[in-house]
Simulated scan of single mutants.
Amino acid sequence: MIITRTVLSTLYTGFSTAFQSGFSGVTPQYNRVAQVVPSTTRVNEYGWMADLPGIREWLGDRLVKNLETNSYQLRNKSFESTVGVKREDIEDDNLGMFGTIVTEMGRLSAVFPDEQVWPLLTNGWAGKCYDGKPFFSEDHPVLDKNGKKTTASNDLGGNGTPWFLLDTTRAVKPLIWQTRKAFNLVRMDAETDEHVFTAGQFRYGVDGRAVAGYGFWQLATGSKQELTPETYAEARALMLDRRGDNGRPLGLQPNLLVVPSSLEGVARKILLAENDAAGSTNVWKGTAEPFTTPWLAAA
């Protein structure tokens, strides 16, 4: 095959189709727990999360809450994946394997947010959120009903396999996927490219800019205790009773029990079985959805 601009354009069109096929062929899971935040700059500020206002009776002038913008930042990161196609493979029409590779690049691009978002839960006892505390902490700062500083916990302790109870029913989510530039297929396939001249290789790749981070700790509870009906009940009660500043009830609806594969059977028994271990009616059936994801293991 004689390499011409038309040949290279046709090749790129085929690769683009393969990429889109791979990208659209999977269903990512990260949006179950992460709020997608479009970014238009290098760094996004999230200090305002500490000051989300409630609604109060309007007596006198409005009570304005000043929004802080300097306590929590997420800086976008750049990511890429690149493959090279030898000139000889194009000349010899030996390109079958490259279509498969580009299809896989599309799939990997679609699930890449999962790789970044889900491990945040497992790492939540170390990773800091907007208040400067670890996402799962026993002493998140809040104000009590009298406006005095106190603390609240979303960490049930323990030292075993971690599991998580989340409220994902709201527009805001426990985690954040901040996206600056969507992943797309790019190319360096002009005959005049230096790499083509020196190495006889055309290059194709994907790149994007994004970052994963912590959102509202109030919407999550983490535990390393053994997962049992009793510890599940403890986590659920902690979330139902959780309050914001000034003692305002948050009205949480814990609806997603996230577990690694090793705890899937236990989670399903707690939330789906008709009867408990003693044969009595299972009072926790249907109170949340058991959710298992392989991406927790990536932490």
Rank of each mutant, 00 (worst) to 15 (best):
G213V: 03
G157T: 04
V33S: 02
M188F: 13
T169K: 09
R56I: 11
K65G: 04
A171G: 14
N146L: 13
M239W: 01
Y232S: 08
A233S: 15
A50D: 14
I2F: 05
E289T: 15
L271I: 12
K149V: 13
S109W: 00
N282S: 10
V266E: 15
G160W: 02
W177T: 02
D245F: 10
S262E: 15
V206R: 04
V64A: 09
R187P: 01
E45G: 11
I270Q: 10
S39C: 13
A235I: 05
K133C: 09
R203T: 13
E274F: 11
M1D: 10
W58L: 12
R209I: 00
M188H: 13
S109N: 02
E274G: 09
M239Y: 03
L8C: 05
R170W: 07
D92V: 02
P229S: 10
H195A: 12
L271E: 08
P113K: 03
G47R: 03
M188V: 05
Q218P: 03
V37E: 12
E191C: 00
Y12H: 07
G286M: 11
A34K: 01
G286L: 11
D114S: 05
R268F: 07
E191H: 12
Q73Y: 12
F135P: 04
S39T: 07
G158R: 02
H140C: 11
A237C: 02
V266Y: 01
S16M: 08
F15M: 09
G147N: 04
T179E: 15
A171V: 14
P290R: 11
T281W: 02
G215A: 06
F112D: 02
V196Y: 14
A212Y: 02
E194H: 10
A110M: 09
I90C: 03
S71F: 03
L63N: 10
L8P: 01
A288P: 09
G60P: 04
N282Y: 07
E104M: 12
L252T: 03
L257T: 05
A288Y: 07
A182I: 09
L240H: 11
T17G: 02
V142Y: 03
N44K: 11
V83D: 10
G251N: 13
K77Y: 00
W284V: 00
T27I: 12
L166F: 07
A278L: 13
M188N: 13
Q116C: 11
T179Q: 15
I90Y: 04
W118E: 05
R180F: 06
D144E: 06
P254V: 03
Q201K: 15
A299Q: 08
I55T: 13
S109I: 01
T292K: 14
F135Q: 09
P229D: 11
W295E: 10
G279K: 11
L238E: 08
T41W: 01
V85S: 04
I270D: 09
N159V: 08
L219Y: 13
Q218T: 14
